[in-house]
Amino acid sequence: MRSLIDFLYRHNHWLVFLLLEGISLALLFTYNKYQNNIWLSSANVVTGRLFEVEQNVQSFFSLRSDNKNLAEQNARLEEKIFRLEQLIDSVQRDSLVAVSTMKRAINVTPATVVSNSINRTDNYITINKGTDDGIAPDMGVIGSQGIVGVTYKCSRHYTLVIPILNSKSSISCKVMPSESFGYLQWNGGDSRIARLCDVPRYAKVSVGDTIVTTGSSTFFPEGLPVGTISSFDPLSDNLSNLIDVELYTKFSTLRHVFVINDPDTAEQRELQEAETEKKK
């Protein structure tokens, strides 16, 4: 203690110096606006930096909880995606092509109609995409309004399509909203009208009902639009109705089509073929 007092006494001019300078600077910053402003603003810069550093340190320590929050958010988003995908499945009919592309498993190849006919009993369509573009027989072809047909034979750059307007064509369809199954066929005549066969008599159908694909045909995903019922008559066998379907696809002006390649259907087809072979 004594030595401390000695020390202070010996160096008391330092204390006086600091005191006087302190008074001077206090006066300076109190009574001079310019220096005062600069002092305050530079002090702000210093405190700003300090807070920034503090923020960085703090964010490091909150990483764990941030991670947890992000994981929870991820889970919520995944759930949402799942729900939306389901929703998309249910509204598929509204926007045919866009939705088809949205489904990841399905590849859609755009193609242009090279040659087309509608006035024969067995009409064929040729499109300008072939095996080089990943197209194989037995793939579904759709237009922008509705389904067109099924690929039949492929060369490297061209593909022959059997459209609905062909007696060989038989596509599994159902009537919405009653969900009754039938086969869409065409026996010549008007290119705008096809016939839905094998719909049971008891099925409730009415004019204006929508016809969509069932998904059991393996060519098309479920729910693609085909047409609407224009008229129906009970058949003489008293078992089924004869339903005339007005097709959505305008074959006379068909130009742009899309080939649907659903890898999953190949598996389905294999299974079904194996089953039919066993029966033989």
Binding site: F17, S24, L25, L27, Y31
Partner: peptide, 15 residues
Amino acid sequence: NTFGIHAAATTFVAF
């Protein structure tokens, strides 16, 4: 009207 400036400088010189 320059409160503190000359006081500080002069005190420092004396120091």
